[in-house]
Design a protein around this nucleic acid. Structure first.
Lengths: 199, 199
DNA sequence: TAATTGACTATATGAATCAATTATTCAATT
DNA sequence: AATTGAATAATTGATTCATATAGTCAATTA
C-alpha cells in the first residue's frame, strides 16, 4: 500500500517533532515541511492535529507492544515469559528517545484509570498478554490459582507506576532497585514451587 | 496551650472549607467568618493562605498516620501488624470525607516522587512504620530477608497507586478486588512459612 | 504583652479586546 | 486518488483594566 507507507512517513516525522517541541509548539507546517508535503495534504491522511498526534503516539505504542509480544513468544518456559515481559516492557523506553520524550511531556498517556485512557485499545492488548501468561502458568501448575483479571490489572497498574517513577519523574536508579525487589517478591508470590529442586 | 487550640479550630474550619470549595474559591474571609475571628487575626497563626492550606492538610495527614500507628501497636504478631497497617491505611479515607475531598481536588498531595512531595516529612514517618515492620519480621524469621529500604519504598508506591485508583479516580470496587489479590501475593512473597502448620 | 481588630495597600484574577498565528477547508490541478 | 495553495475560521497570546482578595500594621483590648 502506497498510502500506508506515506502515512507512516508522516507519523515518523510527527513523532520526531512532537518529541522535540511538544504538542503545542509543533505546527502542521512543521510536519508538512518535515515530510516534504504541503500542509493541506496532511489532511488527506489525518483529520486534524489532534488526530495526527493520537495516531502518531498510537503507532509508537503499538510497536512497543509488538516488540514485547515477539520476545515473549520466543521463550518456552512460562516463568521466563513472565520475566521477559516485565523486563522488556520496563526497559523498552531506554533506547526509544522520541517516544520517551513524548511520554514525559504528556504523562497523561500513562494513566492509572482505564476509563480515561486515550489509548485503551493498545493497553487492553498489552494486558491481554499478561492474562495469557497468567492463565498458562496456572494451567501448568506453575502459578498459584489467582483471579486472572484482577491480578493482570494489578500488575499492569504496578507497571505503569514504575514507568512513571522511572521515566516521567526520572528516578532511574531507585526505580530499578525497587523493580528488582518487587520482581523477587511477586515471583515468590505467584509461583507454586521453588525454582531449584531440593536446594 | 490556648494558642494550639485556637490554631486547631482554624485548621478544622479550613479543612471543611477547602474540602467544599477547593483552594482557589476559599477566601481568607471565609475562614475568618467560619472561625468567628477577624481576617487579620488569622495571620497571627499562619503566615499566608498557602501556609494555612499546607498546615491544614499536614495536620489531617498526621492524624491519619497516628491512627494507623496506634492500631498497629495494638497487634502482637508481625504479620498481623503488616495486614492491619495495609488495610487501615487503605480504608481510612472512607469515613474522612473532608480530607478525601481535598485529596481528590488536589491529587498532587499523593505523589510518586519523594522529591516533589510537599508533605514528605509526614510520608517519611509513614514509611518508617513500614520499615520497622519489615525489619521486625525479618529479625523474627517470619519474612524473607529483603532490602528493607527499597521494599518499603516499593510498598509505599504501590499503596499510593491504590489510593489514587480508589479515591482520586474512584475505581472503588475494582481497586478493592485488586487490593485483595495483591495482598495475597505480597504476603506469600514476603512470608517465610505457611501460616497454618501442616494443614 | 499576647491576642485581636479593621482600615489600608499591594497583589492577583478574570473579563474584554485585538492582532497575529495557526488550523482547517476546498476548488483547482496533476 | 493524491496533491496544492490560496482563502477562511479558530485559537492563542499580549495587553489593558476593573474588581476581588491577599496581606500589613498601627491602634485597641483583655
Amino acid at each position: 500500500m502506497k498510502k500506508d507507507h506515506k502515512q507512516n512517513d508522516i507519523f515518523h516525522a510527527a513523532l520526531k517533532l512532537f518529541a522535540r517541541f511538544g504538542y503545542q509548539k509543533t505546527t502542521m507546517e512543521d510536519v508538512a515541511a518535515e515530510t516534504g508535503m504541503s500542509k493541506g495534504n496532511i489532511y488527506f491522511y489525518v483529520s486534524g492535529k489532534r488526530d495526527l498526534y493520537e495516531k502518531t503516539v498510537s503507532s509508537a505504542l503499538q510497536q512497543w507492544r509488538e516488540t514485547v509480544a515477539e520476545a515473549v513468544a520466543r521463550e518456552g518456559d512460562v516463568v521466563e515469559k513472565f520475566s521477559v515481559m516485565a523486563r522488556l516492557s520496563f526497559e523498552y523506553l531506554v533506547d526509544h528517545d522520541d517516544l520517551r520524550s513524548i511520554l514525559i511531556k504528556d504523562p497523561g498517556i500513562f494513566t492509572l484509570t482505564p476509563r480515561e485512557d486515550r489509548f485503551s485499545e493498545i493497553n487492553l492488548g498489552a494486558m491481554q498478554l499478561v492474562k495469557n501468561i497468567l492463565s498458562q502458568g496456572i494451567a501448568e501448575g506453575r502459578f498459584h490459582p489467582v483471579d486472572v483479571d484482577h491480578t493482570a490489572e494489578l500488575f499492569f497498574s504496578i507497571y505503569i507506576m514504575f514507568l512513571i517513577k522511572r521515566y516521567v519523574k526520572s528516578e532511574g536508579v531507585s526505580a530499578a532497585r525497587m523493580y528488582d525487589e518487587g520482581m523477587k517478591i511477586i515471583l515468590r508470590g505467584i509461583c507454586t514451587n521453588p525454582q531449584e529442586p531440593s536446594a
